[in-house]
Amino acid sequence: MLSEVFQGPEMGEFIIIRDTACYSGRRLLKYYINSALKREESVHVLGFDVPEHELRAKLDSSHLHLWLCKDAFALLHMDIHQQGIVECLTHLASTVISVRPVNNTRYAVATTSHRKKSRKVMQKEEFFSLTEDLKLSTEIKPNQTGNVQADLHTKSEMDPTSNLTFNLCLSEVERAEKEKVALPFVFSEEKKSSLLRPGRGSGRIMYEPDSNDDIDDEDPDDDLDV
């Protein structure tokens, strides 16, 4: 996605590259300037940060300094501005690329979020590296680290059932027999029907009314004519 950011058919993009002191985003910016120059587009640079000769180094500078606004690119040092300002600028941009370093590698991570004209937001995280002569190579997601970790896990995982004093495994016959056994308290169709049918041998309540069962508290002697 990094390499496609600048090649889409949409016009009038505003793209922000956000970096911190740990990793400079300037080379990525130079890569984009260079790729614009290679397509023979005119690029106008407002350099607030570094002198011109540094920026010009390694750029194909024949087309530099001509006015023609198609896309706007900006480099923003996130860590020296207040959070609010950074976020305001981020909202203005149609594409935000945040770069940060990865420990001890020549790769860095770029998180790109792109808002299309249709308001669809696309987000992607990529590993990238830039060579001396501003060639970009990208890699999708942390392949190496992920794989290495996975390998380590599989190696360290031994079969836990191998050294046991009892048998945890089932043969096919055993498994078939086990599945035949109906477990208690499982509500099968048979049980259900036997419970619903009023069987002959099932219990019945026999009740013969007794005179003592019917005592009225307000008339204990049963002699009032209420």
């Binding site: 990793y23 400079s24 300037r26 080379r27 000769h53 540094e54 920026l55 180094a57 390694k58 830039l130």
Partner: peptide, 10 residues
């Protein structure tokens, strides 16, 4: 060593 424009690798 933070690279400048010319020598880049920090």
């Amino acid at each position: 060593w933070r690279g400048t424009g010319e020598d880049v690798q920090s």
